[in-house]
Amino acid sequence: MSQAIVNTVRQFLEEYIRVEKFENDENIFAKKYVNSLFAMQLILFIEKSFGIKVENEDLDIDNFSSVNAITDFVSSKSTV
């Protein structure tokens, strides 16, 4: 797992998540740290920051549920 991706994702999430501390494996949707509006912003951020295209078939909540999940998703798309 790339630490650079983790750092970039965390930096973005910290701007939106209003809790003092959250772990990389915490489910940000299940814990209601974010809402569906944020999901749109997150996908725009991922596409722009990592230069990848999020396709319809990628839009599974499991790909975006935590810092670790997002990092895994970005890594897998980057190697395609």
């Binding site: 569906s36 509006l37 999901a39 749109m40 599974d60 909540i61 975006f64």
Partner: peptide, 17 residues
């Protein structure tokens, strides 16, 4: 259009946007 909750949130949200 869209087959799961995340896609649907994206569709409705982005169309309204």
């Amino acid at each position: 259009l869209g087959q799961n909750p995340l896609i649907l949130a994206q569709i409705v949200g982005s169309v309204l946007d």
